[in-house]
Design a protein around this nucleic acid. Structure first.
Lengths: 325, 325
DNA sequence: ATCTATTATGCTATAATTGAGCATAAGTGA
DNA sequence: TCACTTATGCTCAATTATAGCATAATAGAT
């Protein structure tokens, strides 16, 4: 039916690649967003850097996802809940500091949501606050102070573009990504910001990085993968009820709010947050009352499981607060 | 800094895979959404099926995206505009009908937006209306008639589940995916619907497919990849100004609306559509007047290029119309 | 016992956004 | 001139968001 004039070449020079599966396992504990990390960056040159858990795709696994699950679970003792494929990273040269050398290495990145409580890290893995790697992403206590310094650096870089057009384009990218000159901070632009910092040489992973690099570096391009995961998750919680994967069975609305805030790196308006959650029928009361809140006791609620299959609810929109809550 | 108790294994039993890049190149011409297809399904057993253009990842390409671009452009003569990675497909056994045999084949799927006008298909490729493969997805002229028959099949399948719980779960999936029992049709659930039909055996690609399979089949799992692309694009046009990649330099608001409708498979409310587009400052007048509209002449507009870098505008929300426009 | 701090929770006023449609303008072809 | 088609301006009501106010119910300090 498609005109078959020139027929397809027989599959030309097939190229093989090493494929590994990399997990960004996220949990929220004590109101902090945490990622599962393994030490020692896969035995490469820079062996002391943190790295994401990852392992080769094995032939016995029927699907990529089962491969990821079994590898990460065996390696770290974490039991993965919700799992979603993020992105496949395969630029040549992205493994500068590892053994892979000249071969093409593909990493398929996955986001996995875990309840840390049920998943004590094993095998040398550890749960680390993700803002350690992205300190500029946490606005829960207001604009992070280091953004003042950062802004100066970025503006200097923008002003140093070779031609007029470059300078204009650089400036636009900077002010949009970091919400300068009155533009709003958009919590989802995590990757855009990281790539800008990389390009400017303000993170240690970059080739010409200066001495005052920002945030804890990670092995290979794992910080880029983590940025991708954070961006995706920050977007997703707004339209799919995925936060619940990170919560214990019963929780209070404030705990839920704190979890969302931890992920988004923002403070939310409390009354409106509760209204949204309740209006959408995402939770139901367990009947229990939690008194350990420090104030008036709170009703304990649980996620309405029906929602997932039943109506695939719209998730959580974020009523962003100007000031505090 | 991560507790370094057990140190990482040296990269264990590396596994290689054949990697190919598959493009879903989309254009909108004469108000129809079209995909670039090549004939002959890569020379496999079922050699007569349509297939998406795809080719091996070659080592000379620094990035995956350049690999994809150069391959597809060389093969089909299309010049790709916006390109975005969709998903990596890698389940074993997904290439039932091709040569790959037992080897692991990874396909990295990409969505590419093209202006068909500037890209006449070459090398045996052809632009095909995508609703040929998904006739149930086009609601522009109201609910497609074949959904009546389809609904009966789906309900029968749901009622035939082994246990009570399965039947309930199946029914839920069916009514949510296809908007039955008063639930709204959600144009983004393209993949969910396709996978359901696959599971039920209502598409020819499925193992136990009956004789009355729906829509034109495609080689390998390309129809699944196409479904993924449609779903992604339908979602994306709502929050990023990507439709403009498919439009010529100058166009009328109705042409734009028709393009969006073609992609979404829905009719939109005309006045509200214009209000959204203009309010958001996505377009500007060229000053020209188009008289070939069949009615009152329309102002010609063009996309405001500044928007892309400048403010990364929120895109287009879809004011869905109940009836016609 | 009362006061203070803290959190929970109900409710309201106002502003934006959306959905649906009316009305009129300006062309084409019979 | 009439019938038809598309373009475009505008309105009105319904819905949803934003920002607070006010009150309730605890714990711990005085």
């Amino acid at each position: 039916m498609v005109a078959s004039a020139v027929h397809s070449d027989p599959f030309p020079a097939e190229q093989t690649a090493i494929v590994d599966l990399t997990a960004v396992a996220v949990a929220v504990t004590q109101n902090e967003p945490r990622v599962l990390m393994v030490p020692g960056g896969q035995g490469g040159a820079a062996a002391s850097l943190d790295a994401l858990p990852s392992g080769p795709l094995e032939h016995r696994h029927r699907t990529l996802e089962t491969g990821l699950r079994s590898w990460v679970e065996a390696r770290t003792g974490a039991r993965l809940g919700y799992v979603e494929q993020l992105y496949t990273f395969g630029d040549r040269g992205r493994m500068r500091d590892t053994v892979a050398g000249n071969a093409r290495v593909l990493s398929i990145g996955y986001l996995a949501l875990v309840q840390e409580a049920g998943a004590p890290a094993a095998g040398g893995a550890a749960w680390c606050d993700w803002y350690r790697y992205f300190p500029w992403e946490d606005w829960r206590d207001g604009r992070p102070a280091l953004l003042d310094w950062l802004e100066r650096q970025l503006r200097r870089w923008a002003a140093a573009g070779p031609a007029r057009v470059d300078r204009a384009a650089r400036k636009e990218r900077v002010i949009v990504a970091f919400g300068l000159d009155g533009l709003p901070w958009n919590e989802e632009r995590v990757l855009e910001r990281y790539e800008l910092l990389y390009e400017v040489g303000l993170v240690a992973e970059a080739a010409g990085a200066g001495t005052s690099a920002l945030g804890q570096p990670m092995g290979a391009d794992h910080r880029r993968i983590l940025a991708t995961a954070i961006a995706r998750l920050r977007g997703k919680i707004k339209y799919r009820p995925v936060v619940f994967e990170l919560m214990p069975a019963g929780f209070t609305l404030l705990q839920l709010q704190r979890a969302v805030e931890a992920l988004a790196g923002l403070r939310l308006h409390k009354q409106n947050f509760r209204r949204l959650v309740e209006q959408q029928g995402l939770v139901e009361e367990t009947g229990r009352i939690v008194t350990a809140t420090g104030g008036r006791p709170a009703r304990e609620v649980r996620f309405r499981e029906e929602v997932v299959l039943e109506r695939l609810a719209p998730g959580l929109r974020l009523p962003i607060a100007r000031a505090a809550d």
